[in-house]
Design a protein around this nucleic acid. Structure first.
Lengths: 288, 288
DNA sequence: ATGCCTTACGTTATACGTAATTATT
DNA sequence: AATAATTACGTATAACGTAAGGCAT
């Protein structure tokens, strides 16, 4: 039976051109290589080299064998790589969310429900966002709308409502509600990476935004400046910034319902999550 | 480094369902198998089985690994098979001829020119006969016409002219020449497998043919019967049948020039053959 | 003289077998 | 009891290294 070490040694010779260099590369003695090749030729019943008294050159058979051997070795390496990657993916739950806030609730919940699993998360949003799920780039996908797809299970998470945060001295602070149009011309503080919410400031062409990469820097800036900022129903209950007035934004686009989705072939795996989220939905509405 | 024996043992377990049966199939002890699998799992850093106290079951990792392992083993077998086949094809010259007579001359010539080569020959003819050569089904192809193709070298072999062979008592025996049309209504003896020449009797709808599979039987029949038969310029010089008159057939289709063709990438290999055939062509015409 | 391959022989790694152990049906 | 897997330990195959030899450049 043909063995890996024979193939490895064969391709090393092809790569190095002669036995000595190949032996060196393989951390092997020349005689060992010489014998392995002789054995391989015996096994195949076919010469692989033209042999001179003190030189050896690969023939056509040899070159063909090398071609196949490379493929076999490559596929064997691929086996190792793919099996490891598969096992890894079996041990991790990867979440992809269209906005930051769902992750604040989902990641702790997943950590508790699946204590043996690694949780990896990512926040992004783009056209055909659902592909992230269907192309198996992630296990859980948080969408800004319900998904109607027979392959996909979709569970409501919560609503998020955008608010304007202004200091009491700000001209807008007297409003009970406000529209995005009212903010035209303002200069506003904003977190850099908002995923789905980015469409809001992308549409406000006459408003200046000061983006902050770091969330801590942002909250600090909000505290010390008099600039208006966006905040949301998810942030306000935990917001410790003093002297801020929160004004709900009335536009339809300032309100979104997030849904947590997974492929139905993962249904078994996410049974606990499903129950957890459904219970949560039954408990929460009364509190509203 | 992953080894073949590990893969072979892994797929055997997948095929047999448990270690004992797999061990039996592999002519191996169960402990050996058990250890190999443990080593394989260590190598991959990934479990391949769900282990009970006295049962072992393949998990998802295992099934994936088996899938890849089968491919690797299959490709390794393919390597052996293909390299052997390639070597074999390098050691044989396979000739395909559109008619029998060119082989009578070519095969002895090839045997002499290439004493270390196996000569394999085949007689057949069909539409797109040239494909036999271009698709590398053979090394040498004898065509009934010159080939104009930049990939193919084409050397004239000889002409063959069909004759009618009749006993002196036959009504046609007085003719100096004859056309195929004159043979309508006759009953004729014919060799079964004539390749290119088959188009002749296929076009003679009103003539009965008595086909013979065996060449010896045919010559015997010709000797003892008074029936007319086809013969050719290539056969007559060696024909020992007594009391036969040979009448040339005047039709254009009763005359053909054979050409020996090979792919130009085989030019080096057939250098000797080319010289041999070209010398032969220069010597023969004067004898005509 | 140096580089490159081969032959011969001794060594060692490791894949394998046997026997014993544990657990399940 | 019978079946199945694992553990422990000894064995043997064969891959490898060292030493030596031949033949080129």
């Amino acid at each position: 039976m043909i063995e890996m070490y024979q193939l490895r040694q064969l391709v090393a010779i092809a790569d190095c051109g002669n036995l000595s260099k190949a032996a060196e590369q393989l951390h092997l003695s020349q005689p060992a290589l010489s014998r392995t090749m002789k054995n391989l030729e015996d096994l195949l019943g076919v010469p692989l080299f033209e042999r001179g008294k003190n030189k050896i050159e690969m023939n056509e058979n040899g070159r063909l064998a090398v071609e196949y051997a490379r493929k076999v070795l490559e596929d064997a390496d691929l086996l190792v790589e793919r099996v490891r990657a598969f096992d890894e993916s079996q041990r991790t739950i990867s979440v992809c969310s269209c906005a930051p806030s769902p992750l604040w609730m989902l990641i702790p919940a997943l950590s508790e429900l699946y204590p043996n699993m690694k949780i990896s998360s990512e926040m992004k949003y783009h056209d055909n966002f659902l592909n992230e799920l269907t192309k198996k780039k992630c296990h859980l996908l948080v969408m800004p709308e319900a998904v109607d797809n027979p392959e996909i299970k979709c569970i409501k998470l919560f609503e998020e409502q955008l608010y304007l945060s202004v200091p009491p001295a700000h001209p807008l602070s007297g409003y009970f509600e406000i529209s995005l149009q009212d903010l035209e011309g303002e200069t506003m503080l904003l977190f850099h990476d908002l995923g789905y919410w980015s469409h809001i400031h992308n549409e406000m062409k006459n408003t200046r935004f000061i983006f902050q990469q770091e969330l801590d820097s942002l909250t600090e800036l909000i505290k010390v400046s008099a600039l208006p900022a966006f905040t949301s129903s998810l942030i306000i209950p935990h917001d410790t910034t003093p002297n801020r007035i929160y004004i709900p934004i009335t536009d339809e686009s300032a309100k979104v319902t997030f849904y947590c989705c997974y492929r139905k072939d993962d249904a078994k795996r996410f049974k606990e999550l499903k129950i957890y989220l459904q219970n949560r939905n039954q408990e929460l509405p009364p509190k509203k």
